[in-house]
């Protein structure tokens, strides 16, 4: 654990992150729509809000942009009439090109891009959900000044 982040802060960060993850599941149960659940949001909440992973939060706007756009890419490819393996291959290539172009290294956006293909997502709720949850993740990083901690190091 970083010495700059106290034990108490870490505990609170865990509680906020896990509450956020549970809120996503609760929303999906209440709306009876499992496409709202994005497993990678759980990983991002812990990595960004608790671990404050430098590589993931350094460019806050991309916390929202990268996973959202890769989700749109995967969603669009999934609508094509090609084989499953074709969809996965095309999605992977497009994801790498996209991350290269925006110069991002945000690994989880690979998962949000592949998810619509792997689970065959066809509802717009999937896209809306990615937008909302990654936006909250970004706000969390900005609001709690997690970047400032990073600069001080």
């Amino acid at each position: 654990m970083d010495s700059t982040v106290s034990k108490k802060v870490t505990m609170i960060s865990y509680i906020i992150s896990i509450t956020f993850i549970i809120a996503m599941i609760t929303a999906s149960v209440m709306l009876k729509d499992h496409e709202i659940i994005l497993p990678e949001v759980a990983a991002m909440a812990i990595a960004m809000w608790v671990y404050r992973e430098a590589g993931w939060i350094r460019q806050p706007s991309k916390i929202f942009l990268a996973p959202s756009i890769t989700a749109v890419i995967g969603f669009a490819v999934n609508q094509l009439h090609i084989s499953y393996l074709g969809k996965v291959s095309l999605t992977l290539i497009l994801l790498m090109l996209f991350l290269r172009i925006i110069q991002s290294n945000l690994g989880p956006s690979i998962a949000t891009g592949l998810l619509p293909v792997v689970t065959n997502a066809n509802e717009w709720s999937f896209i809306i959900s990615v937008f909302i949850f990654t936006f909250i993740l970004m706000l969390g990083v900005l609001k709690f000044g997690l970047i400032k901690d990073l600069k001080r190091k």
């Binding site: 759980a42 909440a45 998962a111």
Partner: peptide, 8 residues
């Protein structure tokens, strides 16, 4: 972090 995504 991916370990937290897996159970979902």
């Amino acid at each position: 972090p991916a370990v937290y995504a897996f159970p979902l």
